[in-house]
Lab assay of single mutants.
Amino acid sequence: MNLTVNGKPSTVDGAESLNVTELLSALKVAQAEYVTVELNGEVLEREAFDATTVKDGDAVEFLY
C-alpha cells in the first residue's frame, strides 16, 4: 500500500488496507498513544482509529 505520510511517500508492504491502529503499529510510530492522526485532511478522534480504514493513495499526518 502506497501512502503519503507526513508529506513523504511511504509504503506498507503486504497490505491493501489497514485501520489507523494497525497502521500506527506497522509504521512503528513512537508513542502512538499520544499521536493525533489526520487522514486526508480530517483530524480523527482516537475512538475512531479502529473503525477508520486507511487505503492505498491516502495522505496521513501524525501530529505530536
Score class of each variant (00 low, 15 high):
M1N: 01
M1V: 07
M1K: 03
M1S: 00
M1Q: 02
M1I: 12
N2Q: 12
N2I: 11
N2C: 13
L3T: 01
L3S: 01
L3A: 03
L3I: 14
L3E: 00
L3M: 05
T4H: 06
T4L: 12
T4P: 01
T4R: 09
V5Y: 03
V5G: 01
V5L: 07
V5F: 05
V5W: 05
V5M: 05
V5C: 06
N6V: 02
N6R: 02
N6C: 12
N6S: 05
G7P: 02
G7R: 05
G7Q: 04
G7W: 04
G7K: 05
G7L: 03
G7Y: 04
G7C: 07
G7A: 04
G7N: 05
G7V: 02
K8E: 09
K8C: 15
K8F: 10
K8N: 08
P9W: 12
P9M: 09
P9F: 09
P9C: 11
P9Y: 08
P9N: 07
P9S: 08
P9L: 11
P9K: 10
S10L: 15
S10A: 15
S10F: 15
S10Y: 15
S10K: 14
S10C: 15
S10M: 15
T11C: 13
T11F: 15
T11Q: 11
T11I: 13
T11H: 15
T11V: 12
V12N: 02
V12R: 03
V12M: 07
V12I: 14
V12G: 02
V12P: 03
V12E: 01
V12F: 11
D13C: 15
D13W: 15
D13G: 11
D13F: 15
D13R: 14
D13T: 14
D13A: 14
D13I: 14
D13K: 14
G14E: 06
G14C: 11
G14T: 09
A15H: 13
A15T: 10
A15C: 13
A15E: 07
A15Q: 08
A15Y: 15
A15W: 13
A15P: 09
A15F: 14
E16Q: 13
E16D: 12
E16Y: 14
E16R: 12
E16V: 14
S17K: 10
S17F: 12
L18V: 06
L18D: 00
L18A: 03
L18R: 05
L18S: 03
L18M: 14
N19E: 02
N19K: 06
N19V: 05
N19Y: 06
V20L: 07
V20I: 13
V20W: 03
T21L: 09
T21G: 05
T21V: 07
T21H: 08
T21Q: 06
T21D: 04
E22Q: 13
E22R: 09
E22I: 05
E22H: 06
E22P: 00
E22A: 11
E22V: 05
E22D: 08
E22M: 11
L23M: 05
L23G: 00
L23H: 00
L23K: 00
L23D: 00
L23F: 04
L24Q: 00
L24E: 01
L24R: 00
L24Y: 00
L24V: 04
S25M: 13
S25Y: 12
S25C: 13
S25F: 12
S25Q: 13
A26P: 00
A26K: 12
A26E: 05
A26Q: 08
A26V: 13
A26Y: 15
L27M: 07
L27Y: 06
L27V: 03
L27K: 00
L27T: 01
K28F: 07
K28G: 13
K28R: 12
K28P: 02
K28C: 14
V29K: 03
V29W: 07
V29C: 11
V29A: 04
V29H: 04
A30F: 13
A30C: 15
A30R: 11
A30L: 11
Q31H: 15
Q31M: 14
Q31V: 08
Q31S: 11
Q31R: 12
Q31L: 13
Q31F: 15
Q31D: 13
A32Y: 10
A32T: 11
A32W: 13
A32R: 10
A32Q: 10
A32F: 10
A32P: 13
A32C: 13
A32H: 10
A32I: 13
E33Y: 09
E33N: 10
E33Q: 12
E33M: 11
E33T: 08
E33I: 08
E33H: 10
Y34Q: 08
Y34K: 08
Y34N: 09
Y34H: 10
Y34F: 12
Y34T: 09
Y34D: 07
V35S: 04
V35H: 04
V35T: 05
V35Q: 04
V35N: 03
V35R: 03
V35P: 03
V35C: 08
V35W: 07
V35Y: 07
V35M: 09
T36F: 09
T36N: 06
T36R: 10
T36S: 08
T36L: 11
V37F: 06
V37I: 08
V37T: 01
V37C: 04
V37P: 02
V37G: 02
V37M: 04
E38D: 05
E38I: 15
E38N: 13
E38C: 15
E38W: 15
L39T: 00
L39S: 02
L39P: 00
L39H: 03
L39K: 02
L39W: 04
L39R: 00
L39C: 04
L39Y: 04
N40F: 02
N40C: 04
N40L: 01
N40I: 03
N40T: 02
N40G: 02
N40K: 01
N40Y: 02
G41C: 06
G41P: 03
G41K: 04
G41F: 04
G41A: 03
E42Y: 11
E42N: 12
E42F: 12
E42K: 14
V43A: 07
V43R: 12
V43W: 07
V43G: 05
V43E: 06
V43M: 10
V43Y: 07
L44Y: 05
L44A: 02
L44V: 15
L44R: 01
L44W: 03
L44S: 00
L44Q: 02
L44H: 01
E45K: 13
E45V: 10
E45A: 13
E45Q: 12
R46T: 05
R46F: 07
R46L: 06
R46G: 04
R46Y: 07
R46C: 07
E47L: 08
E47I: 09
E47H: 12
E47K: 10
E47P: 06
E47T: 12
E47A: 13
E47C: 12
E47Q: 10
A48F: 11
A48P: 01
A48N: 12
A48M: 13
A48K: 12
F49L: 04
F49D: 01
F49G: 03
F49W: 15
F49E: 00
F49K: 00
F49H: 10
D50G: 10
D50Q: 08
D50A: 10
D50F: 07
D50P: 07
D50M: 08
A51N: 13
A51D: 10
A51F: 14
A51R: 14
A51W: 14
A51V: 13
T52L: 05
T52P: 01
T52E: 03
T52G: 01
T52C: 06
T52I: 11
T52W: 05
T52K: 06
T52Q: 06
T53I: 14
T53L: 14
T53C: 14
T53M: 14
T53W: 15
T53V: 13
T53D: 07
V54E: 00
V54G: 01
V54F: 04
V54H: 01
V54A: 02
K55C: 08
K55G: 06
K55A: 06
K55Q: 09
K55E: 05
K55H: 11
D56G: 07
D56M: 06
D56S: 11
D56K: 05
D56Y: 05
D56P: 07
D56W: 06
G57L: 03
G57I: 02
G57Q: 04
G57V: 01
G57N: 05
G57S: 03
G57R: 04
G57F: 03
D58L: 03
D58I: 03
D58C: 05
D58Q: 01
D58W: 03
D58E: 03
A59P: 02
A59I: 15
A59Y: 13
A59F: 13
A59E: 12
A59C: 13
V60L: 12
V60T: 02
V60Q: 01
V60C: 05
E61A: 11
E61K: 15
E61S: 12
E61N: 15
E61I: 14
E61H: 12
E61L: 12
E61P: 00
E61T: 14
F62I: 15
F62L: 12
F62S: 02
F62W: 09
F62K: 02
L63G: 12
L63N: 11
L63H: 14
L63M: 11
L63P: 04
L63C: 14
L63Q: 11
L63T: 15
Y64W: 12
Y64R: 06
Y64E: 07
Y64G: 07
Y64V: 09
Y64L: 08
Y64N: 08
Y64T: 08
Y64S: 08
